[in-house]
C-alpha cells in the first residue's frame, strides 16, 4: 500500500466521507483517469503522478448540481486544482465544510494533446520516468522526451504546485518547475504585428469543431446554461462560421477573467490540440497587474471582478 492510499483510507474513515474524487490508472499508457471512491477499501486503486492531468474540481459543481443533500466529498488536488476548489468556494458554489481538500505535491502533468502531437500515430505501450526525461516505447520504437516537452504549458511556469489551502497534505511539498517565465509566451506574441496575431487566432480557432470539451473540462465553466447553448434567443450560430467560433473562444476567455487557475485542463481536453490557453493567460496577466489578484489563493479575498475601488484606473473609458 502506498503512502497515498494508506493516508486516504484513514481520512475517508475519520472524516466520514461519502465520496472521494481522485485518480486511478487509465486504460492507456500515460493516462490517469478520474475516479470516485465510495468506501475506504476502494482507495487501493488510487494513484497520483504526472499522468493525472484532469482537474477534479470540475466534478464538485457537477455533484452539487445533481445532489441537494450535504454529502461530504473528499478531493485529491494538485496546486491548480486546489485553487479551483478555493475559487469555487469564493464564488459560493458549495459550502467549504462539505469539502475535504487533500493536497498532493505536483511535479507537473503530461498534456495528452502534446503527447499526441509528438507521437503522431505511434502508440506507446510502456513508459518510465528517468529524472527529467520520459522514455516511452511501443512496438518497434523507443523515444526519449525531455519532460518539459510533454508537460502542460501551465506547469512549466507554475508557481503553486502545492495546494495553497488544504485540510490534509500527503507527501513533501514539491518545488515549482518554473523552467520558464510565466508570461514569456505572451511577451513574445505581443511583439508580433496585429495582423499576424489575428491570423494566429483565426488559424487556431478556425480548427475548432465546437465539441466543447475545453469548456466542459474546465472547473470554472459551471454555468447551468452556457451562452452557446441558449436557443431562445440563440446568441451564436452553430455552424462552421469562423466568427461564431471566435465568439465562443473570446467570450469564454472573458468569462474566465480573474477566475482561470491555468490548470491546462482545457488545452489537454481538446481533441485537435488547439491553443486555448494564450488568450486566457493574457487576461490573467491583466487581472494580476490591475487588481493584484491571483485566483484561488485564499477563501477571504473577494473575486477581482466583484470589487470596486473609487481610485480604479479607468483609462479605457473615453
Amino acid at each position: 500500500m502506498s503512502e497515498l492510499t494508506e493516508k486516504i483510507k484513514k481520512i475517508f474513515t475519520d472524516e466520514k466521507l461519502d465520496i472521494l474524487i481522485g485518480y486511478e490508472k487509465g486504460s492507456l499508457p500515460l493516462r490517469g483517469t478520474p475516479c470516485f471512491i465510495e468506501s475506504a477499501e476502494d482507495a487501493d486503486k488510487l494513484i497520483f503522478d504526472s499522468t493525472c492531468h484532469n482537474n477534479l474540481a470540475k466534478y464538485l459543481t457537477d455533484q452539487k448540481k445533481t445532489e441537494v443533500d450535504a454529502r461530504k466529498i473528499g478531493i485529491v488536488v494538485k496546486g491548480c486544482d486546489a485553487r479551483a476548489v478555493v475559487q469555487l468556494v469564493v464564488e459560493k458554489q458549495f459550502e467549504r465544510e462539505n469539502i475535504v481538500i487533500i493536497g498532493v505535491p505536483c511535479k507537473g502533468v503530461i498534456d495528452p494533446s502534446k503527447l499526441r502531437a509528438k507521437l503522431r500515430d505511434k502508440e506507446i505501450s510502456d513508459f518510465r520516468f528517468d529524472g527529467n526525461k520520459i522514455i516511452v516505447s511501443g512496438e518497434n520504437f523507443q523515444e526519449t522526451f525531455d519532460k518539459n516537452e510533454l508537460l502542460s504549458d501551465g506547469c512549466l511556469s507554475c508557481k503553486y504546485p502545492n495546494a495553497p489551502q488544504y485540510d490534509y497534505f500527503i507527501g513533501d511539498p514539491a518545488e515549482p518547475i518554473a523552467s520558464k517565465d510565466e508570461y514569456a509566451d505572451i511577451d513574445e506574441f505581443e511583439k508580433k504585428p496585429p495582423d499576424e496575431r489575428w491570423e494566429y487566432f483565426e488559424k487556431e480557432y478556425g480548427k475548432c469543431i465546437r465539441c466543447y470539451a475545453c469548456r466542459n473540462a474546465c472547473p470554472m465553466c459551471y454555468c447551468e446554461q452556457c451562452f452557446v447553448d441558449c436557443s431562445m434567443p440563440q446568441w451564436i450560430g452553430k455552424g462552421g462560421n469562423l466568427s461564431d467560433k471566435m465568439i465562443f473562444h473570446i467570450v469564454r476567455a472573458m468569462h474566465l477573467a480573474g477566475r482561470c487557475v491555468d490548470c491546462g485542463a482545457c488545452a489537454a481536453a481538446c481533441p485537435l490540440n488547439i491553443d486555448v490557453r494564450l488568450l486566457g493567460k493574457r487576461i490573467e496577466r491583466e487581472v494580476a497587474e490591475r487588481f493584484d489578484f491571483t485566483a484561488g489563493m485564499d477563501f477571504e479575498t473577494p473575486p477581482a471582478l466583484a470589487t470596486f475601488r473609487e481610485d480604479d484606473k479607468q483609462e479605457f473609458i473615453m
Partner: peptide, 11 residues
C-alpha cells in the same frame, strides 16, 4: 460519473 458531456466521442 466522470463523463464531461462533450462531443469528442460522437463527433
Amino acid at each position: 460519473a466522470k463523463c464531461l458531456g462533450c462531443a469528442v466521442c460522437t463527433f
